[in-house]
Design a protein around this nucleic acid. Structure first.
Lengths: 138, 138
DNA sequence: TAATTACCCTATCTTTTTTATAGGTTTTAT
DNA sequence: ATAAAACCTATAAAAAAGATAGGGTAATTA
């Protein structure tokens, strides 16, 4: 399951996507819309900004805005950013690889091999589905 | 990511699959092979037994054994048993459904719709890959 | 039938991760 | 200047995961 952080990130991105006509959107508008703590959401939006997905403007009249086209924001990118690995095991993660300590030889591990296949199938979906797909359905 | 519990379950099933020639396998044999705490593993094997995947025999000469054919043990079954939902959001889980409190209308939620698609794609893989696939690669 | 062996159960503790909060700093428009 | 808003860092609270302990129960062998 996705963490709340990631779920909230998707909500925020959806909200921002739906309000692309206005220059900026306040954290508060989003936090009220979804009943998310203002401060908690703040951290999430910051991360999305650092990742180059959102832009922001400080001071009065400021706020956040989408910097990328919705079709260029893959689900995989958001999930990796907030939740970490998409792979089901550390030993098959592309971005957060770690060996399994209990594993004597990765090359001889059937579980490893199968999980690589699972990972690739999951990525096929998560890299191709984007924020645009979410917005289309709203 | 899968929990260690689930990963250990797969290791145990793999071990049992590889030793189907012998009548039973001791918990200790598996726990030593993978460096898993005996007691921790005990709980896992118990759950697998209750789910009808493993059988066991008490007393001297006892132990655990696979009760199902490896091809009939889908990854999805093991994951759901030890880890819970496969879906990325509670509101799209088939087996562990819960509404998202922040969501006013599921029918109008684009995120919900997209995550249903993601879930179905994930299930396509996880229901079709089985213990047999793992054993083939060992 | 008695000792052995291993399954079965419950409870608790520790660690890690997630979720949330707090309080101050910097920037911008008016 | 002042108010409004994002930015930053640290910490606390809660929940989940991981691990351990100790015994109870049942079955098998000798």
């Amino acid at each position: 399951m996705l963490s709340k952080k990631t779920k909230y990130a998707f909500h925020a991105l959806t909200y921002l996507g739906k309000h692309r006509d206005q220059k900026t959107v306040l954290i508060q508008d989003i936090s009220e819309e979804y009943g998310i703590s203002h401060k908690f959401l703040e951290n999430i939006l910051l991360e999305l900004k650092k990742a180059g997905i959102l832009g922001s403007k400080k001071g009065k009249g400021g706020g956040y805005y989408l910097i990328k086209a919705p079709k260029d924001v893959a689900l995989s990118k958001v999930i990796r950013l907030l939740d970490g690995p998409i792979a089901l095991l550390p030993c098959v993660s592309l971005n957060y690889y770690e060996p399994c300590i209990e594993c004597k030889s990765e090359a001889a591990c059937g579980l490893n091999k199968v999980m690589i296949q699972v990972r690739d199938e999951m990525l096929k979906v998560l890299e191709n589905k984007t924020l645009a797909d979410i917005l289309d359905k709203e």
